[in-house]
């Protein structure tokens, strides 16, 4: 059953992200299995699970990249099936495999993304100026993407997701493949961005969720195992997460933290 419309702290009538009975099947494989969750107002929510748990599929559906087999998903009340363009207009998306377009400079990529979003001329310059400042991109704006380190490239792709000042950010494995210092940098940025936005990020690293998220949705085999506050997933020493490991090992124990 769909959740009733609710007021969130920002005063918007619709939940920022709403997922109802979402299913995705590829032939005989069920990648997402009757998933339900809702994110009301500004917060950072982690979608956690081992590799192949179905995280990317969920993120791709939310980004308007994939049509679910059944069920529905909506961003700020815009259904991704019937009002995809409107949903995408209020969503910033960092793909798991952000890359390609290495011949473009960072500035060119951002200009192109503004253009594609209908932001042109002085408005585009303002938008790029804003994200450039927020993400400290000045040193790399004129450089080709192929010549940047992975950490910088990811930063530029993150900027790409922000040029239209979206209410919702969908970040698919935002620190995957980065070295520890680069990871810290991106996590710091995510925390900054979270103040005014709804951020949903997927990760297979528990530490990442601990570092930036308030809430964790744990999935495996496409099913929601737990929807919990992140602090509940960490033990008193803050180093281990026996509950998390127990959850991913034994789906039946999910009820423990609901």
């Amino acid at each position: 059953m769909p959740h009733p419309a609710r007021m969130n702290p920002a005063g918007n009538r619709h939940a920022a992200v709403e997922v109802v009975d979402l299913c995705m099947r590829y032939g005989s494989i069920t990648a997402v299995d009757r998933l339900n969750f809702s994110i009301a107002g500004p917060s950072t929510v982690g979608l956690l699970g081992p590799n192949g748990a179905g995280k990317s599929t969920v993120m791709r559906i939310l980004a308007g990249f994939r049509i679910p087999s059944s069920g529905r998903a909506a961003i700020a009340g815009h259904d991704l099936l019937t009002a995809r363009r409107r949903a995408q207009a209020v969503t910033g998306y960092l793909p798991e495999t952000a890359g390609g377009l290495g011949r473009l400079t960072a500035l060119e990529l951002l200009t192109g993304c503004c253009d594609a979003r209908g932001i042109r001329g002085p408005a585009a310059r303002r938008a790029i100026g804003r994200v450039g400042e927020d993400l400290d991109l000045a040193p790399v704006l004129g450089k080709r993407l192929a010549a940047l380190s992975k950490g910088w490239r990811q930063r530029v792709w993150l900027a790409q997701a922000l040029v239209h000042d979206p209410r919702v950010l969908i970040l698919d494995e935002p620190t995957d493949g980065l070295d520890p210092i680069q990871k810290r940098g991106i996590r710091r940025l995510i925390k900054q961005l979270a103040a005014t936005r709804v951020i949903m990020l997927s990760t297979h690293i528990l530490e990442e969720a601990e570092a930036v998220c308030e809430r964790a949705l744990i999935i495996d085999h496409g099913r929601l195992l737990a929807d919990a506050r992140v602090e509940d997933l960490v033990d008193e020493k803050g180093r281990h997460a026996p509950l998390f490991h127990a959850l991913t090992a034994a789906p039946g124990s999910a009820r423990a933290v609901r």
Binding site: T97, A98, G99, G100, R117, A146
Partner: peptide
């Protein structure tokens, strides 16, 4: 190196 292109599982822009 601008004359080389890496092709891996990249991402199309979903809104284009």
């Amino acid at each position: 190196h601008e004359r080389m292109v890496v092709f891996q599982e990249t991402a199309l822009m979903p809104w284009l």
